[in-house]
């Protein structure tokens, strides 16, 4: 026997959430499905594969002020930014929830990023299980699954006339009033099977192909935009800048990407990654080598967004397959 919420009760719950929280949910804008702040429940899209952009910007906004500094009577006053409003992300997929869990590793590692920590504490994640797999998805190869409840507070799975409810955390329990729930005997629909990519031994293989000409050849095709990094649920590089005006200074961070010319440029104009190949390798080495070495898991969740949006078909699934083959050759 499992818990169940009818469509009607779900809508009335979501309506209540818009009144007490910031509700972020999939909406339809300019022929795109995007996570946006929802004022009316009618704006929410329930029937979608996945959103064009990941929900990472709810925790790591494209741009945010870190703190303000002001000189007052000869004293310097520093005011950190505080996040007061509680937020609910509704409708995120299990892969994207894993993306948030992976971003926690660098951001919450002591000393934790104070702003990210606040966003994280104030956010509740209500997931929607996938009933179909996109041709570019590969979540099961990256430690998640279409019906994976871990990393979420509540997971809903669409069934007849409503949703099967899994309440995973105390936060989730506190958010969803029990009186809206009933029970059902019906088993949940079988999850789809996304295609697999060969990830076994991948970290070692990535190390083995690190110094091969593979990356320069791949970089022939790459146009070095920031698109893959910006749609990615686990890319978290940023740039920081101080804006000073009339004695007040605001420190701002905005998304950046390893594909940008000048990424990690150092004093004296030293460019550690000064070729297109080195910059392209950085993206994949970060996900498949550095991140797992530091935090234990591959830094990709298999959402397939980068595959879908890349203007020139730089396909991480193909690259992983190539790394496996090439690494084995290097070893031999």
């Amino acid at each position: 026997m499992t818990q169940f919420i009818s469509k009607r009760n779900l809508l009335s719950w979501l309506k209540r959430l818009t009144e007490e929280h910031i509700l972020i949910a999939p909406t339809r804008v300019a022929e795109l499905t995007l996570f946006q702040k929802v004022n009316r429940v009618e704006e929410i899209i329930f029937d979608f594969n996945n959103t064009a952009l990941s929900p990472k910007e709810c925790l790591f906004p494209t741009t945010e002020t870190l703190f303000n500094v002001e000189k007052k009577d000869g004293q310097v006053e520093l005011t950190p930014v505080t996040i007061d409003q509680k937020t609910v992300i509704f409708g995120l997929r299990p892969c994207d929830a894993r993306g948030i869990a992976l971003m926690d590793s660098p951001f919450l590692k002591e000393p934790a990023d104070a702003l990210y920590q606040q966003h994280r504490d104030k956010i509740t994640l209500v997931g929607l299980a996938c009933l179909t797999a996109c041709p570019e998805c590969f979540c099961t190869s990256m430690g998640s699954a279409p019906d994976d409840p871990s990393n979420l507070d509540i997971l809903l799975t669409e069934a007849e006339d409503g949703y099967i409810v899994q309440i995973i955390t105390e936060k989730g329990k506190a958010l969803l009033p029990e009186e809206l729930l009933s029970t059902t005997q019906a088993p949940p629909p079988a999850p789809p099977s996304p295609k697999a990519v060969p990830t076994e031994g991948l970290v070692q293989r990535t190390q083995q192909v690190f110094d091969t000409p593979y990356w320069d050849r791949l970089a022939d095709r790459c146009i070095h935009c920031n698109l893959c990094a910006y749609v990615c649920p686990t890319c978290y590089c940023f740039d920081i800048r101080d804006y000073t005006d009339k004695g007040k200074t605001e420190r701002v961070r905005s998304w950046e990407s390893c594909q940008s010319l000048g990424f990690t440029r150092q004093a004296g104009n030293i460019e550690p990654r000064n070729t297109k190949g080195a910059r392209l390798r950085q993206r994949f080495a970060h996900k498949l080598l550095y991140f797992p070495e530091e935090f234990g898991a591959l830094g990709c969740v298999g959402c397939g967004r980068c595959v879908r949006v890349c203007p020139v078909n730089i396909d991480i699934r193909e690259i992983i397959t190539d790394i496996q083959k090439l690494g084995a050759k290097v070893e031999a």
Partner: peptide, 10 residues
Amino acid sequence: RCIRCYACRQ
């Protein structure tokens, strides 16, 4: 909606 990914420029 622009995310300044610079794909247009690139």
